[in-house]
């Protein structure tokens, strides 16, 4: 039987590794290295192949939780990791220059996977914004304009509760079809 898995992807510094850590019951296998580019201004290390975590579900089965690298040059990993995934969780770092543009990059790259399964969006780093509610409105309006019915939530990727909501809504989306 194919492995059950969900994939966290999204922009650099959006909190993908943290989200995988929040869910995983095992120490997360990381492939993070020290960044040599502008990413160092954002964080100490960056994922370059994948993060891998696991949750035990019933009957000895496990749910695999993968995190992808964020940078576009690792897009081949996005495709490898998302094969046969239950769905894609896309995290967007709102403190970047054009987060909506970032979001579009991921929607386009994962288009086929999203059509076959589903997607859920989490907006992170809203605490850095002057008015987080107004920032969220940007996403709601964008989703409305695009006709996206996918969920988009403000999240703190370090919080298990917030990450749970992302997974929960992913399952609900799958259920509704």
């Amino acid at each position: 039987m194919a492995q059950l898995k969900i994939v966290f992807t999204g922009t650099v510094g959006a909190g993908k590794t943290q989200a995988v850590e929040a869910l995983s019951e095992i120490p997360v296998l990381k492939t993070d290295v020290q960044a040599t580019d502008e990413v160092v201004d954002l964080k100490d290390s960056t994922t370059i192949a994948m993060d891998y975590g696991e949750m035990a579900i019933s009957d000895g089965e496990t749910l695999a939780v993968y995190g992808t690298p964020g940078q576009k040059r690792f897009a081949y990993m996005w495709d490898i990791l998302s094969r046969n995934a239950l769905g894609i969780v896309i995290l967007v770092n709102n403190s970047r220059k054009d987060p909506i543009e970032d979001l579009c990059v991921y929607v386009n790259n994962f288009k086929q996977h999203i059509e076959n399964t589903t997607a859920v969006f989490g907006v992170t780093h809203l605490d850095k914004a002057k008015n987080p509610a107004e920032e969220m409105n940007k996403y709601y309006t964008f989703f409305e304009q695009q006709g996206y019915h996918y969920p988009v939530f403000p999240v703190d990727a370090r919080k298990r509760n917030d990450v749970n909501v992302l997974v929960e809504s992913l399952l609900a989306m799958l259920e509704v079809g």
Binding site: T31, V33, I48, M77
Partner: peptide, 9 residues
């Protein structure tokens, strides 16, 4: 980039 991913793995 693939090389770095592989090396890291």
């Amino acid at each position: 980039s693939m090389g770095s991913s592989m090396m890291s793995l």
